[in-house]
Design a protein around this nucleic acid. Sequence first.
DNA 1: ACGCAACTGGGACATCTGACCCACTTCTGA
DNA 2: TCAGAAGTGGGTCAGATGTCCCAGTTGCGT
Lengths: 229, 229
Amino acid sequence: MTHMPVAERRSRLLAAAFAVIARTGVSGATTRAIVEEAGMKLASFHYAFESREELMAELVNEVVETQEVVLEVATAADGSLVGTLEQGLLRYFDQVRQDPRRERAMFELTQYAMRSPAMEGFAARQYERYRRLAVQSLDEAATRTGHRWARPLDELAADLVALTDGITLAWLADGDDGRARRTIAFAARAIAAEASPGPERPATTAGTTRTTTRTIRTTRTIGTRGGAA
Amino acid sequence: MTHMPVAERRSRLLAAAFAVIARTGVSGATTRAIVEEAGMKLASFHYAFESREELMAELVNEVVETQEVVLEVATAADGSLVGTLEQGLLRYFDQVRQDPRRERAMFELTQYAMRSPAMEGFAARQYERYRRLAVQSLDEAATRTGHRWARPLDELAADLVALTDGITLAWLADGDDGRARRTIAFAARAIAAEASPGPERPATTAGTTRTTTRTIRTTRTIGTRGGAA
DNA sequence: ACGCAACTGGGACATCTGACCCACTTCTGA
DNA sequence: TCAGAAGTGGGTCAGATGTCCCAGTTGCGT
């Protein structure tokens, strides 16, 4: 392996580790498997990281902060809130379908962190981030379609996260697309029911189906190596 | 260790394995850790099981079939459907709170099975079982409160399972009781919204708050050793 | 009581894994 | 240019882990 600054080496190892985890699970992410994935020698691992645990901690942090969670909100054709929410959820679902192993890896990392005393709080932060993203999407969806959330957005965000988690988990288990889509429709209905037609209709040209894509973070250092199944 | 028929030994080892997994995760469930938990010697392990993998497969099957999932349906004080559903969910949540490690172990086992080619289909069966239980609860709740589900019960069951999964996962991550309860209230509302006041009012003495407890399966061979946290 | 089959105990072995070491090579700054 | 720092490679080590073996012991049917 050619020369390379430590920082670069570290991030390559992190990416490799994520790829290995996606493929074989956390337990399969041995130092040897990771360096092989990265095309390095074992010694380089311990040159870049103090220990495997240090890498795992770093990975877990990286993942929390930089893992791209695309939450796209696109106004539905009919401009309804339900439709808008459903569209958004369907897009999220497409992402999951496109690369299930990434999702699995995320779940595993979360569980791994929950067990490691050193990474206590990681899981909580992870969910907080999910909620923050959900808040933004919900906010946008309501504004876009001229609605008003009847409950604190923070609470609704938690509800939405619970739904997406449940949908994802079930789909990972049985791979039933139809069922997932039906549950998504239900989820959209359920969330939309928590809004009331509000006074804050935005200045939008009626009839125009505007499609704004919101990507919260574009950094994508992790997980780009593991292609779709 | 005293003499003991193989069958007994096997089930003790399975219980021990579940306890270890609950405490330290699947990766910590080494043959040595398991036999220590069971108070046996290592050789007894391979006398009872061909290999660790055989035990894991057996465990996974046992768990699918016998793990007690208590789904209690109690008519709410006000006899409303929402209240009834919320009560049921709160009871489920209490169970999770009482022994979070069991829930974590279940999630881990599911993920483990999803990765093992030999146990393919286990996860799907697991979710099918969850759905079956949900169907029964929903059916009962509707009958009890004189409602009618507006969609196929099977679909609603999937929605309910997704919600409980999401709620459980989030709570395991952040341990926020209040949030969990708020999401439960939302879940109850969302599910109840899928019913319409139906014609099949049961013959119940009005005003009497009957509390029927339905336990689907009482066998509880697994997981009894790991006490609450 | 007694013989045989069921069962147990302790140790052994090959492999895997995280960590480490040290001689060697490559780069960089004076 | 050239010394020292940064980085690399291959081998090694101790501990953990799954599996196996075999001499001993226990219990049951006769």
